[in-house]
């Protein structure tokens, strides 16, 4: 049953919720017993090693390794497919491994090509 299958995971959610319920009071208690002084507006500036910060905190930032994020989106999904195959490997006939070899070859080849392209800085 779908409901039972989903119900198995309720303990994970319970654990998540318990951590939230148990840890949020730590922040609340800390806020209650700790001093709060708004003496100086400089105190609430972002930390920049003693300097008064200039410019925006959230700026456009050149992420020099952007292709890796793009590669992650593709290969994360492909890697998860391997688990569907791996967990049923003992039940399927041996000949069914051949298409999977093709899949692995495509995956490996594509990854090598993407890595080669990501090394060529001039093209992106």
């Amino acid at each position: 049953m779908v409901g039972e299958l989903a119900g198995n995971y309720s303990t994970v959610v319970l654990m998540f919720g318990f951590a939230v319920v148990a840890m949020a009071p730590a922040l609340v208690i800390s806020r209650m017993i700790s001093p709060r002084k708004k003496s100086n507006p400089v105190k609430f500036l972002p930390m920049e090693c003693g300097q008064v910060p200039t410019g925006e905190g959230r700026t456009h930032f050149m992420m020099q390794y952007y292709p890796y994020i793009l590669m992650f989106v593709v290969f994360d999904v492909m890697a998860i497919f391997l688990y569907a195959w791996g967990s049923s490997l003992l039940e399927i006939p041996k000949i069914a491994t051949l298409p999977m070899m093709g899949f692995l070859a495509i995956m490996f080849g594509a990854m090598a090509f993407a890595l080669y392209q990501s090394g060529r800085r001039r093209i992106w």
Binding site: M23, S34, P46, G57
Partner: peptide, 24 residues
């Protein structure tokens, strides 16, 4: 627990408060 929690000015307060709890 007895130290003051300083939130930087212009911070996105709800997310900033929730992030440590969500991390745990």
């Amino acid at each position: 627990i007895s130290k003051e929690i300083i939130i930087p000015a212009k911070a996105d307060k709800p997310i900033f408060w929730a992030a440590p709890v969500l991390f745990v």
